[in-house]
Nucleic acid binder design. Structure first.
Lengths: 148, 148
DNA sequence: CTCAGAAAGTTCACTTTTAAGACTCATAGG
DNA sequence: CCTATGAGTCTTAAAAGTGAACTTTCTGAG
């Protein structure tokens, strides 16, 4: 299978991966959630080849994950901001961070903590059921075929 | 940056990606959560090159995501089962599916629904705060440096 | 005016990774 | 013996990634 055929699969996971399931893309997104917005900042923080960064950003803009807007004229300079759709990726990012925290943090604990502004506590992300609000684990879920 | 240097980064997301952030790995895991366990079954369902599949499974076993156990002797045949650590990846998978459902499902709706056995309803995964239980969005979170 | 510098890319010449598909090996059944 | 099954390995060919230099459009300093 070629990478771009992935978006034709009848699977939401595959279709998500076609957009963000790339080595660099998730690191770009991580930095975006840390408010990095400019080409050179991404490039320098990640050490990514400029060609690859340009291509990934273009894909993400095309898919509406980032919005490319000028932050100054003369010379025109652009920045990349997460759209609403892009912000919707946060659970994915946070789940990845959380799994890494749990299994790969050293004795000093995880490199970053997350504080929930609303309640004021440091927290972990927990996956919950939209209907009953309880925490959900892999064993509590049954997959059912949809119409598509 | 080379891919294996990723695990040396002081970032939980990068360390997770070093293990599962690969094009194919998340598709393998998707199938694993659908109870696929054998080499040929993975290979056939995914259309992945056998060499790549063998290599990915080996990495995942090495990292304790899968456990490789013989399900018969003479000739010895193995199967790959998710460990507890592997089951912990479910939130990542489900978040990816959910984002795909939300943005790439056609008019027929998503290809797969998930039912919460405990409460009996079809549900979406919602990311919640471990402390107060409320739903958490990107804007509600503040990152704080840890000691590591 | 000229020169240096910034920001956001492009282009080029290679390396490294990935992948497709044939091939191997051990064993079982007929 | 012949074929089938499961779980891989091997060989090439194609795709992706890399680092360095180059481009374009301005600004500000000397």
């Amino acid at each position: 299978m070629k990478w771009n055929e992935l978006s034709n699969e009848n699977c939401s996971l595959a279709r998500s991966l076609a957009v963000i399931g790339d080595r660099w893309t998730l690191l770009i997104l991580r930095d975006a959630f840390l408010r990095v917005r400019r080409f050179d900042d991404f490039q320098e923080r990640l050490g990514i080849a400029r060609r690859v960064l340009a291509e990934r950003l273009a894909v993400l803009v095309e898919h509406g994950v980032f919005e490319k807007t000028a932050y100054q004229e003369r010379p025109t300079r652009y920045e990349y901001r997460l759209t609403k759709k892009g912000l919707g990726l946060y659970p994915i990012i946070l789940s990845l961070v959380h799994w890494g925290d749990e299994h790969y943090a050293g004795r000093k604990g995880p490199p970053v903590y997350h504080r929930h502004k609303t309640c004021g506590h440091r927290f972990r992300s927990v996956m919950c059921c939209s209907e009953c609000g309880e925490a959900v684990g892999a064993k509590d879920v049954m997959a059912e075929a949809g119409k598509a």
